[in-house]
Simulated scan of single mutants.
Amino acid sequence: MTATAILPRTDVGAQHPELYKTINSAALRADRAALGEELSPLLIELVKIRASQINGCAFCLRIHTKDSLAKGESPERLSVLPAWRESLYFDDQERAALALCEYITLIQDSHTNAGWYQSAAGQLTPGQVSAVTWLTMTINTYNRIAISSAYAVKPE
């Protein structure tokens, strides 16, 4: 029996940089849209972190946790983010955005989790729902790029 060689992962961003630039542009526009809808920079980072937690993307978690801390987020709130529903650390707008983020990230369960969308839509304006949706879609795309390309995540 011969051993199968393990091939290195293809860095899809490097392989097709024009597509990666398009994702970067969409992500920047999603951030601007969220800010324009009066969502705070901390909430924007929380959405990115929560989606990355669900997807298990260490690369994006490291980036957005650092960004969040640099913008003034507390380590304590970050530590309870995976259990945000059981904590009192997050306000109504944050809770609605996190519910919407989970609804979109876990889209395969959208029929059973429809209440998450309804809860978010009841707390956020239509513009905020759209902005959080775009934030979530772009970070989910980055998560898939990083994970499928096996981006290295080493201590700095």
Rank of each mutant, 00 (worst) to 15 (best):
Y89V: 13
G13W: 07
Y103V: 14
C101E: 13
R144K: 11
P17M: 00
D11Y: 03
H64T: 00
E18A: 12
L61D: 11
S40P: 12
Q123D: 15
L46Q: 08
I49H: 05
C60M: 03
L124C: 01
A146I: 02
C60K: 04
R85A: 04
N24W: 11
M1C: 15
T141L: 09
Y20L: 07
L124P: 09
R50V: 04
S110M: 12
E45W: 06
P126C: 05
L69G: 10
T22G: 15
R50Y: 01
A30G: 01
N140Y: 03
T141D: 10
T138W: 09
N24F: 10
A58M: 01
I6W: 02
Q15T: 02
L7G: 09
L61R: 07
N55H: 00
A121R: 06
A120T: 07
N24E: 10
A83E: 09
M137T: 06
Y103I: 14
I139H: 01
G36F: 00
G122Q: 03
P41S: 07
R9M: 02
T65N: 10
M1N: 07
D67V: 00
Y20M: 13
G122E: 10
F59H: 07
R85F: 01
R29D: 15
R50M: 05
D67M: 04
A34D: 14
A99W: 00
T2Y: 04
R29T: 12
M1E: 14
I44G: 14
Y103W: 15
Q15H: 11
C101G: 08
A97K: 03
I104Q: 11
R9S: 14
R62L: 09
M1D: 15
I147S: 03
R29H: 15
H16A: 14
T138R: 04
L61Y: 06
F59K: 08
D31C: 00
K154E: 13
K154D: 11
S130D: 05
G122C: 02
S119W: 08
W134Y: 12
